[in-house]
Design a protein around this nucleic acid. Structure first.
Lengths: 204, 204, 204, 204
DNA sequence: CATGAATGAGAATTCATTCAT
DNA sequence: TATGAATGAATTCTCATTCAT
């Protein structure tokens, strides 16, 4: 009688794949790609190194997926906001706020997103990720300029700078004191910086 | 009779030290920290690997100095502009333009400045470098706000975002076609983005 | 009540065993022992890796049997020819022709027969296989010499050399051009070489 | 004052390279490519694994050189004999005798010459090596046939078979008893086998 | 019995650092 | 003092074998 894979086992499998991804992501978030060796990922996931290769054909594939899955989620969030109702400026503010808030919150994709990966394939994926963030803002800028709500400006450059500006929030502990409060100020600071930059300053 | 180091020898020593630093910087600029192995640095400097260790106790120390010396130069340039005459907005524009122009021009410290170094010590130095760039802009923002030329805003955040925005320009090939012309547009795009962001928009 | 293995089940078992052997042989024939991993054998046989170990205690045992069963067949073919009627020279020619023809025909056991196996046990089996081929030719030589049809000569050496000579035909693509025709010439070339070597040259 | 490499040091270096080659060759001779891991080669040479890579860029390069250098020597010996004076049959006998004698003598390139290497690059080199042996015999056959000393026959096939026949001497312990004496008989057996095969039988 | 995920030892390769010369 | 050969730990990846299900 053939062996039938139990649903419990399938759960275990899916679980392992996820654990590997989470381990990898956590390690990158904590100390960059530097610390994310296969051995370290395996140890953290409670698996052997060989097990990693059942789920990912090579190290690069694992980290490309780490990057992509994290960015998929983030971009989806931003896109939802960008596609929402309300005036362009508000949506742009909301998008920046949404991203930066999560970034400030905890160690997630942040570091990976800017850090130089050891692998060229991963590096390529990283650049594409940055582009994808830019796309969301390009769309908002295009819409705003077309509607005469935003002043004429370079869409490509604007999008890139926004991404750069809030990326910065991910790298440095800008305000090392008074975490919670400072975060709030930091987030709003970035939001307003970007808003002013694109000419969507609040009517004050 | 005590051995007296000849001035000629001292020159040689200083010369070697400089050559090592230049080799290291060039290698990082060309291919990131990835390519900057001690062996590669030594080969490029026309020295032996052992010789490197006469001038630098460890790899990390060498690259910390590479980073610092490169940033010393850049910050000095920016500081000079910031300390110059003319209104704050113009000086801020000039500072951004100065940095981004050189960055776009050729692969120099740019890459090193954003790339993840292999070493924790170097990573720390890199973060400090970013701070140092920020300081220049903080000064300008402070001055501008004090003089009521710039609107009230978070100085820390503003400075960070400016650095982030123009850092972004270093990472991606925003406009892969029409190099020269596009660079010009890119540079001015970033300059204006930052100017608007801090409320130093041109009188249009 | 004791468990009675149904004959249907036994068939299944024998079937699996055969499938495993066939898979292994095919893989070795295609790319040497290099490509014949347990995983590959299992996949090709449509079984799990674990199943292999139900039929063979270890990888080496599987490949020893692969070798032996393949050689059983070949040796049986040769033996039939050697035991046939007609003069010794003709039979020796036929035997060499039979072996070389099949070898040239397609990738079968040929490669395995000469290739270095990954395992010491298999290596030992391989050497024994070569001996077994030799035995057939020893018999023919003995008979021929006894009947004064062949000149006096070392039987052991003669047999070994014949095996060596036609083994060589398996290793190199002697004539890469004009496949069919060349094969024919190659085969007859080897046949006549061996015939002359043992003093069974055609009456010319 | 620049450091000048002493000739003693250069000797050491050349010595190491040679030691590595010898270790590799010995390991292959003893147990095939299977046993010749970089670790094993290094250990046997009294060096670290890293040291191997100072002399050989990759494992394949090391073993290609092992193969080539061994074959260079052998082929040179054979060529010298083939280019000598005397009738073709005598030279052919001498060439075969020369090769087989050394092969029987001790574990040298023998195994490597026939064994399947783990590496495709090495495999390619191995096939070329076999061809090179063949070339020497092709030359002799061509000369003999042209001078009407040898009967008409396929030169390519003849050369291949000769190589095959004496290769066999390398693989198996044809005569396990009475080493010395048997070797003598084995060697002459192979010599005469090949001589008869090409039609250069002794006038008896 | 069958399954195939997991193991873990081992392979090739790299590179910062040391030290005999 | 300069050299660069040597070290050896670390890294990625493979695969025969086991065992919970």
């Amino acid at each position: 009688m053939p062996y039938r894979r139990s649903s419990l086992m399938e759960e275990r499998l899916a679980d392992n794949r996820l654990r590997i991804l989470k381990s990898a992501r956590a390690l990158v978030a904590e100390g960059g790609f530097r610390q994310a060796s296969i051995t370290a990922v395996a140890a953290r996931a409670g698996l052997s190194t060989g097990a990693i290769y059942r789920y990912f054909p090579a190290k690069a594939d694992l980290f490309v997926e780490v990057l992509n899955s994290a960015v998929d989620y983030e971009v989806a969030m931003l896109q939802k906001i960008a596609d929402g109702k309300g005036d362009v400026g508000t949506r742009l503010r909301a998008a920046v706020r949404s991203f930066v808030s999560r970034a400030v919150e905890g160690p997630n994709l942040a570091y990976a997103f800017i850090a130089e990966p050891a692998d060229l394939e991963v590096e390529a994926a990283r650049l594409i990720c940055r582009e994808r963030f830019g796309e969301v803002f390009k769309q908002l800028l295009r819409e705003g300029i077309a509607a005469n709500v935003l002043p004429a400006q370079s869409i490509d450059v604007g999008a890139a700078c926004i991404v750069g500006a809030f990326t910065e929030a991910l790298v440095r502990p800008i305000t090392p004191n008074a975490k919670r409060e400072a975060s709030k100020a930091l987030i709003e600071g970035i939001v307003e910086f970007c808003a002013r930059a694109v000419g969507a300053a609040k009517a004050s």
